[in-house]
Each structure stands twice: as C-alpha cells, then as structure tokens.
Amino acid sequence: MDVNGVALAYDDEGQGPPLLLLHAGIADRTMWDDVVPMLKDRFRVIRFDLRGYGETPLPDGPFVYASDAAELLAGLGIERAHLVGVSMGGHVALDLAIARPEMVDRLVLVGAGIDGWEHDATLAASWQEEEEAFERGDLDEAAWINVRTWLDGPARGEADVPKALRRRVFEMQRAAFDQENPAATGGWLTPSRRERLGDVTAPTLVLVGALDQRDFRRIARFLAGEIPGALFEELPAVAHLPPLERPEAFARTVIGFLGER
C-alpha cells in the first residue's frame, strides 16, 4: 500500500478487534511469524515493515514512523486498534498513543526505548563497536554485534541461544543495513515522548525480558511508573525480543491483557 509516498509492505490476517504489531529496530515484520497464528483467531492482526526494514524501502527525505502507522490503519479502514510494539516499535507505538489517542485502544510496550535517557557505559560501548564496524564496511560484524547485544543479552553467551534464532535475527538486521540511507530522516509526532507520558490514556502493559539490558529493564519500570495506571511485567528467561524467544508465552500474555474489559 502507498503510505505517505512509500510502498509499505504489510500483512493483514484474521478477524476481530484490530491489532497492530510494530517490530523491533533490529528486525522486520517477520519477527511476528510465530506469534500471529496464535493471535489471528481473536484479532484482525496487521503488521508492516517500517521504512528501511524487510520489504519497505527507505527513500530520501524526512518521514515520521508513527504517521506511517496511522495512515496504514486509515487506509485499511481502521479507526481504532490495539498496539503492540517491541523496542523501537514500542517507542513508535507510544508516540502514536500520545499524539493520536483516539486511534489507540490498548497499548503493549515491550522493551521500549524512550528519548532523553542516559544509557550506561556498557551499552554505549556496544553501540560504538557497532558504529566502528559499520564505518569500516564490516556489515556482517555490525549485525552480529546487534545479535549479541539484543538477542543474547548481557547474561548469556552465544551457546545459550539457539543457532537458528541467532541466524534469523542476524539476517533481519543485515538486510536492514543494506537499506541504510543517510538522506532519509525519521522523526516523531511528539517532540518528546518522555515529557508526555502522563498524557497516555490507553490502558497500558509494559513488558520487559528478565535477561534484557539493564538500561531497558530500568526504562520499562520508568515507563510503568509514569504512564497512568500502567501494568508492569518482567518476562522470565528472555532478553530483548520475547516474541522471538518464547512466542507462545508472549502471545498468552498479550491475549490476557487485551482480553480484559
């Protein structure tokens, strides 16, 4: 579908209340492949590739992540939906919930980031290592750094995570690197999401993996404390990408929350 001047790749499956899934910044919409079959009997599940990920291109010029999400829903005739976002996708979902509250029914934030956060030295060093690998043209190593940082997490080694899952995340991130475009600049509907957390009106569940980076466990508790009425849950035995590591447990948690009335 053409959305804000870009051909947005998306999937639309199932019946029931609309549910929009927003992928992490080291993945694409296929990260939901194991979760969607457990959701589509209860919900109309929409997922799409953000610009520069999967099958969605990253053309020159400014754009707004949450605006693409809003326009996709509008193009599908959906006025209001549940939002579930992981990592960067969670930040996009939060932006939409603040700027367009009438469009958001319930909100699930999973290992979401937030603007204005001062990250610890360990995570900053990982980002620096990735940047150096990228600048010297070693895109494979840059992608593997992301796998180690986000999928393995700080508490596990490579041998502790299934090889097939590590390869799957590597391939999604590696493909995104091939689409990098310095002439494209992503932005936000809300200048500072952190300063507007008290304006979130959607019932919200904040999830984080028990094995995620310490900073993101701290951010999750911060979000849960600042968003009015938000619930908090730490998911055991997973790091930054719970839908990939434990899709069945993740789906049960999401269904349980979205099914509350």
Rank of each mutant, 00 (worst) to 15 (best):
W144F: 14
W150Y: 12
R100P: 00
R148W: 11
I46S: 00
P57I: 04
L244P: 02
L197Y: 04
I78P: 04
I227P: 15
D12L: 05
P191S: 02
A239S: 15
A27K: 05
P57M: 07
V35T: 06
Q15N: 13
A176R: 01
L205I: 01
E260C: 06
L58Y: 00
V254S: 15
D212I: 02
D33A: 14
M103I: 06
G153T: 04
G153I: 03
A24Y: 01
G198A: 03
G209W: 01
P243H: 09
P59T: 03
E79Y: 01
A142H: 11
E234L: 11
L165N: 05
D152N: 13
M38G: 15
A164Y: 02
M88I: 06
F232H: 15
H119P: 10
A224K: 02
E135P: 06
F222D: 05
F222W: 11
G89D: 00
A251S: 14
E141S: 12
V110A: 02
M38V: 06
E129K: 13
A24H: 11
D2T: 14
D60V: 03
P182D: 04
T204Q: 00
L207P: 01
E71P: 05
R156S: 07
S87V: 00
A230N: 13
G137Q: 09
D140N: 10
W117A: 13
G225E: 10
A70K: 04
F43L: 11
E245M: 11
R44T: 02
A230Y: 11
D140I: 09
A143G: 09
Q213I: 08
R51G: 07
E141Q: 14
D28Y: 01
E171G: 06
F250Y: 13
H91Q: 07
D34F: 07
D212P: 01
E55N: 12
Q173E: 14
I78A: 02
D215S: 12
M31P: 13
E180Y: 13
R106V: 03
E141Y: 13
D68Q: 05
L235Q: 12
D215M: 05
R47S: 01
G153Y: 05
E79Q: 04
I114N: 07
E55W: 03
D105H: 13
L231R: 15
G229V: 04
D215K: 03
A121H: 12
F43N: 05
E195M: 04
E13M: 12
E234Y: 10
D33H: 14
T201A: 15
G85Y: 01
G225Q: 07
A66R: 02
R29N: 10
P242V: 10
I219S: 03
D12A: 10
F177G: 02
F257V: 14
F170W: 09
E158Q: 13
F216P: 01
A133D: 14
D11E: 15
P37S: 09
L39Q: 05
